[in-house]
Design a protein around this nucleic acid. Structure first.
Length: 730
RNA sequence: GGCGGGGUAGCUCAGUGGUAGAGCGAGGGUCUCAUAAUCCCUAGGUCGGGAGUUCGAUCCUCCCCCCCGCUACCA
């Protein structure tokens, strides 16, 4: 049997899961159900990555053991999946999710150790001494400047430290990765993401640091008690642990790992958000290649077949939640729709999958949800089912007539391969659109035939036409209920039952056997109850807002200031790549950007638009003394020359007269200030900052500016009164 | 700055070397089996701007503007 393995990211449980995480998981659930109905042997994995300093600190702050703390967080995820009707694996739900967690998991330690040992054997791991600026308070490296620098986050002076870390020779895999991308264009999808990955790899890979000495909460480094495995190996390897991997030698030959991963014909799909593409498309295959280099040919681990990076879900700003905490949670949405008798889960799933093609950023809005629901589900499928069933009762004694409409069925039959083709590409939007195009056809056919008029005539021909048409539509509805099951599990099951079927929809198979005329003649159909009751826009919106607000209040009451949350407000998620959770706890010594912990997360972003969020104020416990402040020398200077620096978007080179001398200072303000207009302007310069070269240009100081969110726009400090050059700020 | 992708009806987008389409919304009409649903008609849009190739370009070439992504550079 064909095998299909799909994973969500291994989520970092530092906050309650929001709509973004739900989106990824829903997509995987849909795919798991769909593939299962196509006859695949399916495994679906999700989980939580529970290591990392941030979680440990949060647990400490909460005064509970970190193991218990993360176990509680884990439940938040499982609870959400339960609310969303996403089943956990069981004999009854073979395509339900399996859950892997990393902490206190000896099996996972075995997996990780095995992966690392293989890479060591193959010579890809080296221990290197690293020197750099480290902010003790924030547990992170600050910058690579050669003179004392302050921490970006807390402003404290960073210390020069040296630490030995294990490094992975990622650079050794550049050519092999490029070859992989060439030979397997489906390895990264959508294709435009593949282009990004390729160009990133082509530009050269740096070795990455894969251990930490200062951390305690994590997988211990094999044979080195002083080091802890850093996020990469820990989180990515959990994809293997989750299906039974314990290191190749210790893995049960009958385990799912051999079924779903080692099978060369299995499809292995990692569904992720676009923000974590690089780690999955570059690091992960490199880790696997590294391990394979230490193995004989016949024992090598296959690579994933596809890394699918979907887009983010944006939340259209609305009046009700202008204050803050605009993150959208799925539970109140489902609850609100349910309260009107609508299948909330199905509606949400349908909206998310139909409205935006997977891979593109989605713009979530309550109005869009209601709109989609009413036009497609209520007016479309729901109404078609309703009118058809009613007519069967009124005109055909409540049974599916024997006759089959002849030629009209042609188009509907062709629907199935088109739908299947789109879904297999994860193009849910197109697949669903094709179904709804057919629903529209069916509506048109009914109006064209007018069964209610034919019934009046009483002639044999008319009766035959009437019955043939209604029977055909009923058969069509049966097919629709099967095809839409993966997306609309609850509603399609109801429809299936209405049509007189006694089995379950999920027991059906989407293959050559899924044809028309499967409803037995004379099948008794149910008297219809609206499957998708139409929603009143105003009332539903009001309910959605009300429940979202109630949810927010409840959340605050439970955790007044969740310590594991970012210090920054969530809606500051502005600039390129910055996300809700962008707050690196430690920066790797290499210049690689810091990822979030976990294999991923899906931020619900605001439309950056005009949201202004204040920079988080310095917490009270981070106050500095007057002496600390006195160390910083700031003086008034006058710009006497300004020019752009070639090949730098943001940098201006300024000559600033600070009274005693003229300083050359670089400032990252080119996007907002015209160089010509700066000349003659008084600015504030930090004059005792260590010199640093930026883009090859030496900078002796720093121009002081406010950083205005959301995009971090710099605004230069100015004086209302006239101030002489050289005046010191105190 | 480099690389890549885009700018088409109010919105979301499709599309072809011969002067442009779908869905939704909106307006009008119709039917009555149906969830005030369905069905039918209606959008006259400089297909980002300019130049060129061509008998003819929205689709081909060049230049420019703007947007997005990755990347570099920025604390």
């Amino acid at each position: 049997m064909n095998r299909f393995f799909i994973t969500t990211p291994i989520y970092y449980p530092n906050a309650r899961p929001h709509l973004g995480s739900a989106y990824t998981t829903i997509v995987c659930d849909v795919m798991a159900r769909y593939k299962r109905m196509c006859g695949y042997d399916v495994a679906f994995l999700t989980g939580t990555d529970e290591h990392g300093e941030k979680l440990q600190r949060a647990a400490d702050a909460a005064g509970i053991p970190v193991e218990r703390f993360v176990a509680e967080k884990r439940e938040l995820f499982k609870n959400l999946w339960r609310t969303l009707g996403i089943p956990e694996y069981s004999p009854k739900h073979p395509a339900g999710y399996r859950f892997v967690h990393t902490s206190q998991n000896p099996d996972h330690v075995k997996s990780v150790h095995w992966m690392i040992r293989q890479a060591q054997k193959a010579g890809y791991i080296t221990k290197k001494k690293y020197e750099g600026r480290y902010c003790i308070h924030d547990e992170r490296y600050v910058s690579d400047s050669t003179e004392p620098a302050n921490c970006d986050i807390c402003g404290r002076p960073a210390e020069l430290i040296s630490e030995e870390n294990y490094f992975f020779r990622l650079s050794a895999f550049q050519d092999r990765l490029l070859k992989l991308y060439e030979e397997h264009p489906e390895f990264v999808r959508p294709d435009f993401r593949m282009n990004e990955v390729k160009s990133f790899v082509k530009s050269g890979l740096r070795d990455i640091s894969i251990s930490r000495r200062r951390l305690k909460w994590g997988v211990p480094w094999p044979d080195d008690a002083e080091q802890v495995v850093y996020v990469w190996y820990d989180a990515l390897t959990s994809y293997l642990t989750g299906i039974g991997f314990r290191g190749l030698e210790a893995t049960d030959p009958n385990s799912d790992f051999y079924k779903y991963w080692m099978d060369p014909n299995a499809e292995r799909v990692h569904m992720i958000g676009k923000d974590i593409l690089r780690f999955h498309a570059v690091y992960w295959p490199a880790f696997l290649m590294a391990a394979n280099d230490a193995l004989p040919q016949d024992k090598r681990l296959p690579l994933p077949t596809t890394i699918f990076a979907h887009g983010w879900i944006y939340y259209e700003q609305d009046k009700m939640s202008k204050s803050k905490g605009n993150v959208v949670y799925p539970e109140p949405i489902v609850e609100a729709l349910n309260s009107f008798g609508a299948p909330g889960n199905d509606a949400l799933r349908y909206y998310l999958l139909r409205d935006t093609p997977l891979g593109q950023d989605a713009s979530f809005s309550y109005e869009g949800l209601i709109q989609r629901y009413n036009s497609d589900l209520a007016n479309g499928l729901g109404n078609l089912a309703s009118r058809t069933l009613t007519m069967l009762h009124q005109l055909c004694e409540g049974k599916v007539p024997r006759r089959i409409g002849p030629s009209e069925a042609q188009g509907a039959v062709q629907l199935i391969p088109a739908f299947a083709e789109a879904f297999s590409r994860l193009d849910f939007s197109t697949g669903l659109a094709s179904v709804w195009a057919m629903i529209s056809e069916a509506d048109r056919l009914i109006v064209q035939v007018k069964p209610w008029e034919l019934a009046k005539s009483g002639s044999f021909e008319d009766k035959a036409k009437l019955e043939g048409t209604l029977s055909m539509v009923a058969q069509f509805l049966r097919v629709v209920s099967v095809l839409t099951y993966a997306v609309l599990p609850a509603a399609s099951s109801v429809l299936f039952g209405y049509l007189g079927e006694s089995g379950t929809v999920e027991g059906e198979r989407i293959d050559d056997k899924l044809k028309f005329q499967l409803l037995a003649s004379d099948t008794k159909v149910a008297k219809p109850e609206p499957i998708f009751p139409r929603l009143d826009k105003e009332k539903t919106l009001a309910k959605l807002y009300e429940l979202a607000e109630a949810d927010r209040v409840r959340e605050r009451a439970v955790a007044p200031v969740p310590p594991w949350r970012d210090r920054r407000p969530a809606d500051e998620s502005r600039t390129k790549g910055a996300t809700v959770e962008q707050q690196p706890e430690q920066k790797p010594p290499s210049a690689e950007p810091e990822p979030p912990r976990g294999t991923g997360f899906q931020p619900v972003k605001q439309h950056a638009a005009k949201m202004a969020a204040p920079q988080a104020p310095t917490p009270a416990d981070q106050k500095i003394s007057i002496d600390d402040f006195a160390k910083v020398e700031m003086r008034v200077g006058e710009v006497i020359a300004a020019e752009r620096i070639p090949k730098a978007d943001k940098l201006l080179k300024l000559q600033v007269d600070i009274g005693t001398e003229v300083r050359q200072v670089c400032a990252g303000i080119a996007e907002y200030y015209e160089p010509e207009k700066l000349i003659g302007r008084k600015v504030v310069v930090v004059t005792n900052l260590a010199p640093r070269k930026l883009r090859g240009v030496e900078s002796n100081g720093m121009i002081v500016a406010a950083s205005v969110e959301p995009e971090g726009r710099p605004v230069l400090v100015t004086f209302q009164e006239d101030v002489p050059k050289g005046a010191r700020l105190k």
